[in-house]
Each structure stands twice: as C-alpha cells, then as structure tokens.
Simulated scan of single mutants.
Amino acid sequence: MKIPVTIVAIFLLGISKLFAAPLDTLSITGKLLKAPIYSQIANGYMHYDTITDEDKKLAYQTKAIKYTMLALHYFSRAKDSIGLRGCFNNLSRVYRSQKEYSQAKWFALQSNAISRAKGDVSGIISSLLDIASIKMDIKDYPLALSDLNEALKLSTKNHLNRAESAVQLRFAILYNLTDNYDKGDVALKRHDFINDSIRKHDEAVLAARIKAEEAFENKKKFYTANNEKLYNNLYFKRIASL
C-alpha cells in the first residue's frame, strides 16, 4: 500500500522540527515529563500505612522515598516549586513514619519555606501542623505550641475554618500529652464546634443549590408547556383560516 505523499511530507517536517529544536528546549521537556511520572509512581507507594505486613510496609516506604527523590531531582531542575513542595511533604511523612525525626522536620521546613515564599497561607498552616506534630513526637512541646499558635493566628485571620479545626485538634493532642486536660477539652470542643458549623453551612449551600435547580427546572417546564400551547394555538388558527 502506498502512503500518500502529503502524509510523508508532514511526518518529515515534524521530524525536522524536532531535531532543529534547541537542546535546552528538549531537555526542559524531558524534565517536565519525568518529574510527574516519578511523582505518580511515588504516590502509589505512599499508601504504605494501609499495609499490615511490616516487611512489605518497609519496602513500600523505601520505594516511596526512592521515587520521590527522583521526582524531586527533576522538579528542581525544572524549577517547579509546587512539585518540590509535594515531594518535601511526602518525604517528611515517610521519615516521620520511620521515626527519622530530623529528616522529617527538615523536609517539612522546606515545604514551609516554599509556602511562605509563595504567600500560600493554607500551605504555611499545613506545614506548621506537620512541624508541630513532629516536635510533639520528640517531646519538644514548647516549640510545638509556638508553631500551633502561629497556625491558629493565620487560620483565624484568614477565616480558614477547616484549617482552624485542624489546628484545634492538634492543640487538643498537645494539651493531653502535657497533662493539661482542661485546655485539651476546650480545644476539642472548639474543633467539634467548627466542624459542626462547617457541616451546617455545607448542608445549607447544598439545599439552596437543589432549590435553585428545581426552580430552574420548573420554569423550564412552564415555558416549554406555554410555548407548545402557543404553537398549537397558532397552528390551529392557521388551519382554520385556510
């Protein structure tokens, strides 16, 4: 079977453009492709906490670190700060699971630094919670309290209710670890109150959306019925006039 000349010409033109492209462009394209692929593979191993077999769990953690490091390398070369932050978060989580607290804290701090540089308040709060949790693991309670206070200030100032709820839960954990049960109860009640408020708000928004959709459908049916009635009236009048 002969291949049409036009297709051959288009193919050759594409190949020529590919080889004519600057090496830097091809290199950047390669980085952009490799980074998310390695990241996706790593994410597949980040479910190690669902595995009960300790040897298999360790194998998953090891592979999660391996592929996250590979993704980190290419995200760094591509100067992708969001990709880097995701890698730092994953590495911090795995190392914390392995009780390698120095490494876990270092990667959490890198994530925090990126969020601060980008002015991402939600990211700052999330990383502060991770850092505080690691400090609680190593019984560095005063510094953990400092991180939580900053996270609380940011969440309330920016009206981030879900973030504040998460902060209050960490406060409850910290206060219970330090035998300050009264404050722990207050923090837990605040956490529950915020969650209840969020639930009621979400339910109200959903109910309003359903009501609006029903009203739209009713109007649609009304206008459709009226249009059909008008059309039928005009049709029969025209027939009668013939």
Rank of each mutant, 00 (worst) to 15 (best):
F171N: 11
F171V: 01
N158S: 11
T156Y: 11
D147T: 02
S165T: 01
S146W: 00
N158M: 12
K153A: 08
E150W: 09
A172N: 06
E150A: 10
I173D: 09
F171Q: 03
K157P: 01
L177P: 01
S146I: 04
Y175D: 02
L169A: 06
R162W: 12
S155I: 05
L145R: 06
T156C: 03
L154G: 00
L145Y: 12
R162H: 13
V167P: 01
L152P: 09
A151K: 08
A172W: 05
N176H: 15
H159T: 07
E164Q: 14
Q168F: 10
R162L: 15
L177V: 00
L152F: 11
S155Y: 08
N161Q: 13
L174W: 12
N158T: 05
L154N: 00
L169E: 15
F171R: 07
E150T: 14
S146C: 04
A151Q: 09
N149T: 10
I173R: 10
Y175V: 03
N176E: 10
R162N: 13
L174R: 10
L148K: 01
L152S: 14
V167N: 00
T156L: 15
L154I: 02
L174A: 04
L152M: 15
I173A: 00
S146R: 11
A172D: 02
A166N: 07
E150D: 13
I173C: 00
F171P: 05
R170W: 02
E150S: 09
S165D: 06
L145K: 10
L145T: 01
L152R: 15
D147A: 03
S165R: 07
S155V: 12
L160Q: 07
N176Y: 10
S165N: 09
A172S: 08
L154K: 00
L154Q: 02
A166E: 05
A144T: 05
F171M: 05
R162Q: 15
A151D: 10
A166D: 06
H159C: 08
K157F: 11
V167C: 07
L174F: 09
L148I: 03
L177Y: 09
S155R: 02
L177W: 01
R170I: 00
L160D: 06
S165E: 12
N161C: 09
L143T: 12
S165W: 03
S146D: 13
A172R: 06
Q168M: 15
A172E: 02
N176K: 11
S165I: 01
L174K: 07
S165Y: 02
R162M: 14
L143W: 04
E164F: 05
H159D: 12
E150H: 13
T156E: 14
I173M: 07
S146Y: 08
L169D: 10
A163S: 11
F171H: 08
F171W: 05
V167Q: 06
L169G: 01
A166M: 09
N176D: 15
I173V: 04
S155K: 02
S155W: 10
L154T: 01
A163L: 09
L148H: 09
K153D: 12
R162F: 14
L145D: 06
K153S: 12
L145Q: 11
L174S: 11
S165G: 06
L152W: 14
R170D: 04
A144Q: 08
Q168K: 15
A163M: 14
Y175M: 10
D147N: 12
T156G: 00
K153H: 13
Q168I: 00
T156V: 14
V167T: 08
T156M: 13
L152A: 11
R162C: 00
V167A: 09
F171S: 04
N158P: 05
L174G: 10
H159V: 08
R170E: 07
